[in-house]
Design a protein around this nucleic acid. Sequence first.
DNA 1: TCAACAGTTTAGAATGATTATAATATAAAT
DNA 2: ATTTATATTATAATCATTCTAAACTGTTGA
Lengths: 142, 142
Amino acid sequence: MLKNSEFVSKLRNSGLRPTKQRLKICEVLFNRDKTFHFTINDLAKNISENFNEKISLATIYNTVHAFKDKGYLKEITISSDKSYFDTNITKHHHFYDEDTNLLIDCNDNEIGKVDIKNNITGKKIRSVEVLVRVASDTQNQN
Amino acid sequence: MLKNSEFVSKLRNSGLRPTKQRLKICEVLFNRDKTFHFTINDLAKNISENFNEKISLATIYNTVHAFKDKGYLKEITISSDKSYFDTNITKHHHFYDEDTNLLIDCNDNEIGKVDIKNNITGKKIRSVEVLVRVASDTQNQN
DNA sequence: TCAACAGTTTAGAATGATTATAATATAAAT
DNA sequence: ATTTATATTATAATCATTCTAAACTGTTGA
């Protein structure tokens, strides 16, 4: 659990002014014990339901993108119409439960290191992401 | 290289009528030596530039989705605004070159088998996909 | 062969998520 | 305090995708 003043310096250190709205969003996103996976829509709903003050949707978009650009959030794209953000910015992989539409973080107990034997010549690896889609046995495979 | 009559039976076998438009799209997608990675936009452009007859954009969307549902295409989502389709429907992974926006298929020489040690209880694994993002050394990491 | 039907295509309208705009408000610097 | 740069906001604009409903086509079987 982080304090408000810690968010203020976090924002200042990355050249973002600590506005009321950004601090509120920090609180919602980062004042948690566990990682948080959310869509823009989830976040907007969370804020409007749990707080009196409303934050404009444009600001929510701007802030989430600013946080992503500053490296405070990772984006995980499941399909063309489902994009999640993740407060866990360490290197890790995901399970995606197609029954519940929930993302689940993996750690090294679950997925071993990916063995990349040959990279493209002259290129540097920026990221390696594994997505394991799961569903209950009864559902149709596609 | 497949023949027109082979596309006709392919379509019939999966309950799709072999219409002029679908056969044209088959020809563009599957009459190739190498796998083809494309966006809907790429495909529409390809058809309008290389053929006299034009196919409505709605038909292109419908057909690509029908082919995907029937298992003739795989969809690979790179980010919320970039979705590719792949004519290679075998299990395989991808490099994504951020400089050129090009997808490159991997085979077992490039990425070893992903070691999944523990799956979610009661769930079945539907797919395992690795995406390796690469870029030239000089570019900013994000 | 040809009618009848179900499935398909089409142009254009509708949708919905995201981004742009430009006026107002706020934070920081002087 | 005043100024300046930045941020927020409501609303409009954009753009990819999907929907609609009318016209068209492939298939079936009499």
